[in-house]
Simulated scan of single mutants.
Amino acid sequence: MTAPFTPPGRRWDDLSGPSLVAATSERSIAVVPIGAVEHHGPHLPLRTDALIAEAVATAAVERVAAQGVDAWLLPTIAYAKSDEHHWAPGTLWIEGTTLLDELIEIGRSISMTPVRTVAFVNGHGGNVMLLGWVNRELRRRFGLRSFSMPAGVGGAGDGVDGRPDELGQGIHAGFGETSIVMHLAPHLVAPDLPPRNVPERIAAMTHIGFNRKPVMFGWTSDDFGPTGVIGDATGANAAAGRDLFDRGVGFVSEALVEIDGFEFG
């Protein structure tokens, strides 16, 4: 019988079914980038979140594989829970319950292989709470070890070294995301950046707001103005984007190493 052919690289979908079974084990980690296809102002591509999640996850998988972690990169999930941008032409979004079902079915499929661990690398804030739900479902239903993490470590401008001060509220199409896309795909960034659009009244509140403030609220991006931007892209640059990207790859790589050695108890 001919042995299964395993091509070089760490892409799950480059393998045949038999070669996947031969190449993986219960120590393997299925790494799933997840982003969105949604409005990112007039200056960034719709696939910004998917682009960043895939680029970070790809680099992290390559890095940890070289360190002996048996990580495999799955295809990026691009259509996600982006209803906060439902008003903007070009946004391709699905209901949260639809995405939940999809991710559970992907987990079910992974559980039919030797792989017992899945790690979602997320580039879109609208997916965060749902991924927490998914982690529990995949553990309860299929016995998988399931983890989720952001694709970056935060990039709101802090007003230092020429960066704009986004008052901790730069969450969408502002300094961080624009800088990273300038680094990864500068040809996709429009030359004219939108004006600053930081919700300063919310930033002044103690409890209500974004980025770890404890009181959440319902919103859609057009609540903050017609551009859909929540932040300040005017100081964005590729050098800052390279630094943010490298920090994201470092963070995800370290997380995957911890996941590789994770045990309950």
Rank of each mutant, 00 (worst) to 15 (best):
V21N: 09
A30D: 05
P7L: 00
M205N: 05
G176C: 04
I94H: 00
R139D: 04
S148L: 00
T206R: 13
G155N: 00
H85E: 05
A185M: 07
G90N: 06
F224V: 04
A65N: 13
R163I: 03
T48W: 05
F264E: 13
R47W: 13
F120D: 06
E105W: 12
V31I: 00
T48Y: 06
L73C: 11
F175N: 02
P89N: 04
E95W: 08
T76K: 01
L144D: 06
L103M: 15
E102D: 14
G41H: 01
T91V: 11
T97K: 11
W133M: 12
A23T: 10
T24Y: 03
A66G: 13
F142K: 01
R139N: 07
F175V: 08
F5M: 06
R27T: 12
N211S: 14
N135Q: 15
R201P: 00
G225V: 08
A71Q: 09
V249T: 07
E95G: 14
R196D: 08
A119L: 08
M149Q: 15
F142N: 03
I202E: 03
L193T: 12
F120G: 05
W93K: 03
G17P: 02
V252N: 12
T117L: 08
H85G: 04
E62L: 11
K81P: 00
H85T: 10
L167W: 00
D243I: 15
E38Q: 11
G159I: 07
M149H: 07
A30Y: 08
I104C: 11
G162I: 02
P42F: 05
R242T: 08
F147L: 02
T234D: 09
G235L: 03
G143A: 05
I171P: 13
S16I: 06
Y79Q: 15
G241I: 04
R145A: 12
L99N: 12
F251N: 08
G132I: 01
L74M: 15
A173G: 14
H39S: 12
G125L: 03
A156H: 08
I94D: 01
R163L: 06
M149D: 00
V134E: 12
A203V: 06
G125N: 06
T97L: 09
F224L: 06
L100E: 14
G231W: 02
G170A: 07
G125H: 05
T6C: 12
L184Y: 03
F210K: 03
A65W: 14
V118G: 06
G154S: 03
A22D: 14
G35W: 01
E26F: 04
D243F: 09
L74Y: 11
A53D: 05
I202G: 02
V61A: 04
E258I: 09
Y79K: 11
V118P: 06
R27L: 00
L51S: 14
H86Q: 14
E102A: 15
T91R: 09
E105T: 15
D223E: 13
H40N: 15
V160W: 05
M216Y: 13
A240G: 01
P4A: 04
V198T: 11
L138N: 07
V160K: 10
H86P: 00
G218S: 14
F175D: 07
D13V: 01
R10C: 09
A239R: 13
S109F: 00
M1D: 07
G41I: 01
A239M: 13
G143R: 06
L144N: 04
E26M: 00
P186N: 09
D223S: 10
W219Q: 05
M129A: 15
A119V: 14
